[in-house]
Amino acid sequence: MMENSPIENDAVRRFSVFHRFLHIFVMISFTFLAVTGFSLSFSDQGWAGLVVSMLGGAESAAGFHRFCAALFYLVVVSHLIWLGYFKVVLKGRWTGPHTMIPNSTDWENILQNFRYIFGKGKPPLFNRFSYLEKIDYWAVLLGMQSMGVTGLLMWHPEAFSAVLPGYAINIANEFHFHEAILAVGYIGVVHMTSTHLTPEAFPLEKSIFNGRIARRRLKAEHPGEWKDRYAPTAPSEGTTDPADAAS
């Protein structure tokens, strides 16, 4: 059993199997959504034609886009179900050092981080999730609602225009397109750089894939989490603390 123990001497666990699984699903479906969606909206470009022909035509690419969208939304639903499980069955807390909810500490962290970037202070001390990770999370969770609604409007325009005015479909189309650019831009620029292009993680941040993070790194980057869960004063590694189980 020891060889399969999630916690090894040099590394501790940061993400559960469930979360790694969801991340892989989000990663794949998001990539294909971006590729198919932009190939369809930039259809006059040569590369778009190539991609669409590889996917078997515009109809097929659109079908693939919707399939991936359904997969993506399935992840959102699974996550919401898990949140309920976390709260009700595991009696977990949504606040505290493991929180995803933005609070005043995040604001202080942002200011502190900018002071640090400009050489006027020490790096901020994050809890379980830094403000950047919280932005990542809420961008996906809220963005998927608006992308989902606008996408659904374009998927079934006949059904929706029975209750909404026709221009709602056009608005949905514009909204969907621009939010897609925002999302892909954010993932491509902020999410990728802030995770992979840090000296500690470069060239690849693996902790969302193998769930592990070196003790040393956790201590340095998320001292709040470290203190709460793994520091010698905290409960032992075999803890049954709900927050640990939820990790």
């Binding site: 199997v17 469930f18 069955v89 189980a245």
Partner: peptide, 24 residues
Amino acid sequence: VEGEERSMHRKIDLGAEAVWRTVF
């Protein structure tokens, strides 16, 4: 697993971890 009253969550957690590591 370690003398708790109910360990279903923990068993699933450990089992999933083991499956994950084996598959990859």
